[in-house]
């Protein structure tokens, strides 16, 4: 995973799939990935976006009423930083 990649996590399966649909419709094409074991979130499916798309992604999800918690992976270790 690239260091400039952000991971979007969700409270439930329904919201992660809705998030993917909203982001795709808005042209922010996210990657779909399994939730890393080091992150606790409601849904086992997470989305990844590049850094330059994070702002747009957050705006789309906020408009769509989707709760998300964002993480960034530290380069080589299994450590994820919560992004406020």
């Amino acid at each position: 995973m690239e260091a400039n990649t952000y991971i979007l996590t969700f409270p439930g399966t329904g919201s992660s799939i809705k998030a993917e649909a909203l982001l795709t419709a808005a042209g922010v094409i996210p990657g779909v990935m399994p939730l890393p074991g080091a992150i606790r979130a409601g849904c086992g499916i997470a989305l990844r976006v590049l850094a330059d798309k994070l702002g747009a992604a957050r705006a789309v999800l906020e408009d769509g009423g989707i709760e998300t918690v964002v993480y960034r992976k530290e380069s080589t270790v299994n450590e994820y930083i919560l992004v406020i």
């Binding site: 649909a21 086992g44 499916i45």
Partner: peptide, 21 residues
């Protein structure tokens, strides 16, 4: 649907969401 990130699981999950829509 909704159980994994791979293409067959996501195809089902997307279809279920499309049905909700």
């Amino acid at each position: 649907p909704g159980r994994s990130f791979h293409a067959p699981s996501m195809a089902a999950a997307r279809a279920v969401y499309a049905a909700r829509e």
